[in-house]
Simulated scan of single mutants.
Amino acid sequence: MIGENIQHIRKKKGLSLSECAKRANISKSYLSNIERNLNQNPSVQIIGKVAMVLGVDFRTLLGTKSVEELLPENEWLDFVKELKDSGIEKEQLQEYKTVIEFVKWQNEKINKERT
């Protein structure tokens, strides 16, 4: 799924595979393997680089909903309180959201493989 999303957005933006890989500072063959779903477990860093080159949010490539959409209101408030109590600064939250979305994507992939 992530490979298809990357390929679709890349083509929509008019970027060749070579140009996208070059801008993301990854090999063309590696990006090609991701797009063809031969590499189904790219790192958070790689996905982040590709998202930046394509000018999209990390979640767009993963095809996931935002954390806000996944948690009911009271759970969201508890989650924010826990983060605040742990000493995480507001500026650091985007880094953590990215990791959460990546873990969610991996779990969905594992669940699909089981069915």
Rank of each mutant, 00 (worst) to 15 (best):
M1H: 12
G3P: 05
E4Y: 03
N5Q: 11
N5H: 12
N5E: 06
I6E: 00
Q7D: 06
Q7E: 13
Q7Y: 10
I9Q: 03
R10W: 08
K11I: 02
K12L: 10
K12M: 11
G14I: 02
S16A: 10
C20Q: 01
K22V: 00
K22A: 01
A24N: 03
N25C: 09
N25I: 13
I26K: 05
K28R: 15
K28L: 05
S29M: 08
S29K: 06
Y30D: 01
Y30H: 15
S32I: 00
S32G: 14
I34T: 10
I34A: 02
R36P: 00
R36W: 02
R36N: 14
R36C: 08
R36T: 15
L38I: 15
N39L: 07
N39T: 12
Q40R: 12
Q40M: 09
N41S: 13
N41W: 02
P42H: 02
P42I: 09
S43L: 05
V44S: 08
Q45C: 04
I46E: 02
I47L: 13
G48A: 04
G48P: 03
K49G: 01
K49M: 02
K49R: 15
V50C: 06
V50G: 01
M52Q: 12
M52C: 02
V53W: 00
V53M: 02
G55M: 07
D57R: 13
T60A: 09
L61D: 10
G63H: 11
T64W: 06
T64Q: 09
T64P: 02
S66K: 07
V67K: 03
L70E: 11
L70Q: 12
L70A: 12
L70R: 13
L71D: 07
P72I: 11
E73P: 12
N74C: 04
N74K: 14
E75G: 00
W76C: 01
L77M: 13
V80I: 15
K81G: 01
E82D: 12
E82T: 10
E82Y: 05
L83I: 13
K84I: 03
K84S: 14
D85P: 00
S86Q: 08
S86I: 08
G87T: 06
G87K: 03
E89H: 11
E89V: 06
K90L: 14
K90G: 06
K90Q: 10
K90W: 07
E91R: 11
Q92V: 05
Q92F: 06
L93P: 00
L93Y: 14
Q94V: 11
Q94M: 08
Q94Y: 11
E95L: 11
E95C: 07
K97Y: 15
V99E: 08
V99Y: 06
I100P: 02
F102K: 10
F102G: 01
V103I: 13
K104S: 09
K104C: 09
K104P: 00
W105T: 09
Q106K: 15
N107D: 11
E108K: 13
E108G: 02
E108I: 10
K109Q: 13
K109A: 08
N111S: 10
N111C: 04
N111T: 04
R114G: 00
R114A: 08
R114Q: 12
T115Y: 09
T115L: 11
